[in-house]
């Protein structure tokens, strides 16, 4: 048992209202590496936690544009260089006809990058995370609302942080302990 390491603390709150207030309190106390877990996204939580806007839009913009360029480039190259063939007397580079496939690849690349980008930013998939050491945490995907503070936070102190979480109304404050 002595190998066990403390990864952080987990506290439970009653409802979205309590969770928002807790998030504000944790942020105001100066913690940085904390998270608020809920079964659905809670309205106003980003401001309460003091988070910046997600950067995923830029990722998608870049890849969607890349998709469009590849789409138009593929069609243009295939029809003018690789296999030039006059069809219905149209110019080899009849770009109007290429718009649909260009658009399709724009959407395809955009959508794939939206999903993969989201997973990348969320550091998913991953097989394990310290919050899963807690048995109570199972309800975070059902009807439980939790705040977790990670031990890597510069302000983290197992005893003090625990008292702090209890003082802001956290129930069942648990130490996330594991290998």
């Amino acid at each position: 048992m002595s190998n066990l390491k403390i990864h952080g603390l987990l506290a439970e709150f009653a409802d979205p209202h309590a969770l928002i207030n807790a998030a504000k309190a944790v942020r105001d106390a100066g913690y940085k590496t904390f998270d608020c877990h809920s079964p659905f996204p809670v309205h106003g939580m980003d401001q309460a936690m003091g988070m910046k806007r997600s950067s995923i839009g830029f990722i998608v913009a870049v890849f969607a544009f890349l998709g469009a360029v590849i789409g138009l480039g593929l069609q243009g190259w295939a029809s003018t260089a690789a296999y030039p063939l006059v069809i219905s007397g149209k110019p080899l580079f009849s770009w109007q006809a290429y718009i649909i496939i260009t658009f399709a690849l724009f959407v395809l690349f955009g959508a794939i990058s939206a999903v993969l980008g989201m997973l990348r930013l969320n550091k998913l998939p991953r097989l394990h995370h310290p919050v899963f050491y807690s048995d109570r945490f199972k309800s975070a995907s059902d009807d439980g609302f939790f705040v977790s503070i990670e031990a890597s936070d510069t302000q983290f102190d197992a005893a003090l942080t625990k008292t702090f979480l209890e003082s802001i109304g956290g129930k069942n404050v648990e130490v996330l302990e594991g290998e």
């Binding site: 079964p39 988070m51 999903v115 989201m118 930013l121 991953r126």
Partner: peptide, 21 residues
């Protein structure tokens, strides 16, 4: 489920990604 934990730091990217989709 790819290790989903329902943390708001995940929901934030998730929701924007869903909106873009």
């Amino acid at each position: 489920s790819l290790g989903w934990r329902g943390g708001n730091r995940q929901w934030q990217h998730y929701e924007l990604s869903y909106l873009i989709l």
